[in-house]
Simulated scan of single mutants.
Amino acid sequence: MTATSAFFEQLADVGHDPRLCKVRGTIRFDIREGDRVERWLLDIDHGRLRVTRSDAPAEAVITVTADVAEAMSRGEMNGLAGITRGEIMVDGNLALAMRVGRLFPVPPDSRQQAVSGRGE
């Protein structure tokens, strides 16, 4: 099992995340590896999470390579940094996509900066 699959399956098992209690919308993750595309659809309704494998339309579509998805799922990559570098493409509601970033593990260097108070 990949870190990406484990991440989405964990979200499905949790079923609710209070950090998203004010969020409502759908986000589809299109994860590309060569010619193959793996799709995960996340439906958020005031913190209630429903995860399916679907290519249904969504308010935001996040397109990444399998390597980037793995790094994000392991907490090795910051989503905003990935968007800035062009490694993460967002089509549709960018604000919604940014809010979903809260679900991913925080990169270790970000935790250190938060603890030390330095944002260098």
Rank of each mutant, 00 (worst) to 15 (best):
E33Q: 15
R19N: 11
I27N: 09
R32A: 09
G25L: 01
P18E: 11
G75S: 01
G34V: 07
T65H: 08
G34W: 08
D55H: 09
E33L: 08
A60N: 03
V51D: 01
I62S: 04
P18Y: 09
H16P: 06
L42I: 05
I31W: 04
R24W: 02
G47W: 04
R48I: 06
G34I: 11
R74C: 14
D43A: 12
R24Q: 14
R48D: 12
V23Y: 03
S54D: 03
D35E: 12
E33I: 12
R19K: 13
E59A: 00
M72Y: 02
H46K: 11
G15K: 05
C21S: 14
C21W: 11
E76M: 13
D43E: 14
L42Q: 02
E33P: 08
R36D: 15
R32H: 13
R53G: 14
I27V: 15
V51W: 02
L20I: 03
E76I: 06
E33M: 10
T65P: 15
L20S: 01
E70H: 09
A69I: 06
R32K: 14
V64Q: 07
V37M: 04
E59W: 01
D17R: 00
T63A: 10
E38L: 10
D30W: 03
A69N: 10
T63D: 11
V61R: 07
